[in-house]
Design a protein around this nucleic acid. Structure first.
Lengths: 193, 193
DNA sequence: GTCTATAGGCTGATAGAC
DNA sequence: GTCTATCAGCCTATAGAC
């Protein structure tokens, strides 16, 4: 055959990476298929050899993006639950994350669009989200706390991005960061596991 | 004159109310001017006698919706800070709120679109949001806690709506509700002001 | 102030050359 | 597998009748 066996899969990966960045920056619905594909360097015609519809792309995008987020967590160098969580809070609740949605978490920019998507998309989303929540629950020793943390993180970046004034953005970020760190400290006051 | 003096203003109010519901349910960008106006019972031609552009409508919508939210808070019957906050948490972190975005808070469905809007829209948004944050700060005796609460509330509804399974939606809602109520109890353990 | 009609551009998706 | 060319349908915004 003309192409090595993994070539199509590799193209698909590149396509998901590029269109993920565009969708997170400009919105998924607002980005036409042409626009999403231009970032990947191909045309809309080529798109349909990889996905049956735009909705199928959204599904693949969610899977790819949430997997990437879990992979970032896996690269966290800290061992104790306290250090591990501190590191992730600082990484997420960060002005750089506010200013660069294209390189950040998929949840703040696209959750509202997922909420309006069809059932297959939302079911995949729930399954992938729960995987992340379970990882967090292990570190927090609480499934409930894990949900609360995720909600706080996502809401903070979402609102900070809608605010134009950088000082106010920082106030929001720092407020949430201290709120979560206080909640952690209260649960393990001595730093013990 | 043919119309009573306040007629146009009244029409405008009705138009904002109806298009607010549509925008919160289907998204602002995804709802065409025709669609937004159909809900108000007029056509796209009439729209441009009230607003110079679709962006101007978004600005007016944000002002109208956040004012409506503050008016809801003003109707809270409780006096003590603890009861007042409990009441609002129960009202916001509610399955009904998850299932009926058209009647709910504007932040979860539209914040991501506001973040991508032009400067005048975002500046108005910040000013209106801070008004609400200040009201909450009075009740919480902390500007910082007020920001953290808002972020938690918005993130929770946003994520719960993207999740299809009602049991999981409830788990997310209850997790955030307990998290916030615990934070409140810790700050005023005896229930004192 | 509201309507209908219309303009020019962009959308998601398909057909066929290579 | 990717390209160009193309479809019908939607978008924002405007013009002019009433």
């Amino acid at each position: 055959m003309r192409y090595p066996p993994g070539k199509k899969e590799q193209n698909r990966k590149q396509l998901l990476l590029a269109s993920g960045r565009t969708a997170k920056r400009d919105g998924f619905a607002a980005s036409g298929v042409d626009g999403l594909m231009k970032a990947a360097g191909v045309t809309s015609g080529a798109f349909y050899s990889h996905f049956s519809s735009k909705s199928a792309l959204l599904k693949a995008l969610i899977e790819s993006e949430l997997l990437a987020s879990r992979n970032m967590w896996a690269g966290n160098p800290h061992q104790t639950a306290e250090d591990w969580l501190d590191f992730e809070l600082d990484r997420y609740l960060n002005l750089g994350h506010v200013q660069h949605p294209e390189a950040g978490c998929v949840l703040p920019p696209l959750a509202a669009e997922i909420a309006r998507a069809d059932a297959p998309v939302r079911e995949l989303f729930e399954a992938e989200l729960v995987k992340g929540q379970q990882i967090l629950a292990q570190r927090l020793h609480s499934e409930e706390m894990a949900w609360a943390f995720i909600c706080q993180l996502v809401g903070t970046i979402l609102l900070a991005r809608a605010i134009p004034n950088e000082a106010t953005q920082n106030a929001v970020l720092e407020a949430s960061k201290r709120f979560l760190k206080d909640a952690l400290a209260q649960r393990s006051p001595t730093g013990a596991e």
